[in-house]
Simulated scan of single mutants.
Amino acid sequence: MKKFGELIGADTLVLIDFYSDWDEDENSLAILREVAAALGDTAKVIKIDIKKNETLADALRVKGNPTFMIYKNGEMKWRQTGIQDAETLIGLVHQYA
């Protein structure tokens, strides 16, 4: 949990994708790669496996897969469960940057 606090506490905006590898497909990975490429140094794009990080997922009440969150300076700015397209995610990051 401490590492997560350090990650989201940075000045850089963080987009997190909570996923489960049993339900992961190439399309969602391609979307995140597109988002990361478009954002460059504007934000960090992180994937967190729900099963490997159950304590964190429970603490954040992650129930659906995928669940996306945007953090800035340690504060959650946006959260949505369900598949998102690259344009939407890029637009949201720019909105909160």
Rank of each mutant, 00 (worst) to 15 (best):
G5P: 05
G5L: 06
E6F: 06
E6R: 15
E6M: 14
I8C: 03
I8W: 03
I8A: 02
I8T: 09
G9A: 09
D11P: 14
T12N: 12
L13C: 13
V14M: 08
L15I: 14
I16H: 07
D17K: 12
D17A: 03
F18P: 01
F18S: 01
S20R: 11
S20I: 08
S20C: 08
D21Q: 14
W22F: 11
D25V: 14
N27T: 15
L29C: 05
L29T: 14
L29Q: 15
A30C: 06
I31A: 05
R33I: 02
R33Q: 11
E34V: 11
E34F: 07
V35C: 03
A36K: 12
A36C: 06
A37Y: 02
A37E: 13
A38L: 07
L39H: 03
G40W: 10
D41M: 06
D41Q: 13
D41F: 04
T42P: 00
A43H: 05
V45C: 04
I46E: 08
I46L: 03
I46Y: 02
K47G: 11
I48W: 02
I48R: 03
K51S: 14
K51C: 05
K52D: 12
E54H: 00
T55A: 07
L56M: 07
L56Y: 01
A57K: 01
D58Y: 03
D58E: 12
A59N: 13
L60K: 06
R61Q: 15
R61S: 14
R61H: 13
K63L: 15
K63Y: 12
K63H: 08
K63P: 00
N65C: 12
P66E: 06
P66I: 09
T67G: 05
F68R: 09
F68S: 01
F68T: 10
I70E: 01
Y71T: 02
K72P: 01
K72W: 00
N73F: 07
N73Q: 13
E75F: 03
E75Q: 14
E75H: 01
M76Q: 14
K77C: 08
W78A: 02
W78N: 06
W78G: 04
R79E: 14
Q80C: 11
Q80R: 14
Q80M: 11
Q80P: 00
T81Q: 13
T81C: 13
G82C: 06
I83H: 08
Q84F: 06
Q84T: 10
D85S: 07
A86P: 10
A86C: 09
A86H: 07
I90S: 00
G91F: 07
G91I: 03
G91M: 08
L92I: 05
L92C: 05
L92A: 00
L92M: 15
H94V: 12
H94A: 12
H94C: 08
Y96P: 03
